[in-house]
Design a protein around this nucleic acid. Structure first.
Lengths: 167, 167
DNA sequence: CAGATAGATTTCAATACGCAACTATTCTTT
DNA sequence: AAAGAATAGTTGCGTATTGAAATCTATCTG
């Protein structure tokens, strides 16, 4: 009774301590993500983002501000031209590279088909490795190989564990 | 003249053939991403998602349909209970695991601080490896180590290459 | 048969989006 | 120095999306 099943409770409790929602606030939105992609590709100025992404100016302005507030981008005046502002990735923003590349690789494999433009290592010219989840020892891990572990209590939770246990 | 700088043109050309926008349509949205996380954590039913995420029912309904249409989730009737529908991840959906984990790891490192709940390998109980971009030979790659390569023409493009070349 | 449950759909107010026009600085050209 | 162009925004306004609550239908349980 009183409704909520144990796995939902377990999940919600975990979700509250999960860093994902905060991350999603910052870049879990179409334009923010495309701005990030642009920045990773070297775009730096308002007009570049605007023309490059085809985004409305007010929306762009809003997203850039939020991303600056969120610490992903830094806004600076161009010393060489007082009209220009330079938007550059912070370390925090650059650290999103694996997320963007992982999504790109997924899109390539499951939506788009191999793109003729590929991300490659400058040194060798060879394509970057496909990102995969791995164990500490390097074994590749699938969803079914995973569990949650609570470092304080030591409690563990497998994917469907709780849904059977009516506890 | 006529406005657009060469690096924006290069960016736009590349963007047109980029698989990211399509991927972003499907999961580049707060709720879609949270539903995906829920599904990866074993949520299967409408009411579980609703209660677990605190999402409005109409929005949930809309997103679930779009994710089914997009091939990320499959909707099936529960043979044991005709009222229930089972939403399960397709292979395409499961393949998003690295994206979700990468974002989670980013949030943990840059937003949230270490979470007390950690994703671990069932076999060893040890936390999963942090996802990083690597070259084919295993070297870790930073943003500045990357380039774009066009497989058809063989042309290459570095991050800021075009912004100096006023071509 | 009378609830209760699961998965939605409908209604409606509030918010967010997107386009176009406008503003304010700061170069650049003449 | 004045006129024009470039850069980075802001404002107004119509449209689309969201979110909360109520409603609906089919199925299951007591």
């Amino acid at each position: 009774m009183s409704g909520i099943e144990p796995d939902i409770e377990a999940f919600r409790a975990a979700a509250l301590r999960c860093p994902l929602p905060e991350a999603i606030e910052l870049i879990g939105e179409k334009w923010a993500f495309l701005i990030l992609r642009g920045a990773l590709n070297g775009l730096q100025h308002f007009e570049q983002f605007q023309a490059g992404l085809g985004i409305a100016r007010n929306i762009l302005s809003d997203r850039l501000s939020k991303m600056v507030d969120g610490g992903i981008l830094a806004r600076a005046s161009d010393p060489a031209d007082g009209r220009k502002k330079i938007y550059s990735l912070t370390d925090k923003g650059e650290a999103l590279l694996p997320v963007v590349v992982a999504l790109r690789q997924w899109g390539e494999e499951w939506c788009h088909g191999p793109s003729d433009i590929q991300l490659a290592d400058q040194q060798t010219g060879k394509p970057v490795k496909t990102l995969r989840l791995r164990a500490e020892d390097g074994r590749e891990l699938a969803l079914s190989d995973l569990m949650w572990i609570d470092r304080r209590t030591g409690a563990t939770l497998r994917r469907h564990q709780a849904s059977d246990a009516k506890l």
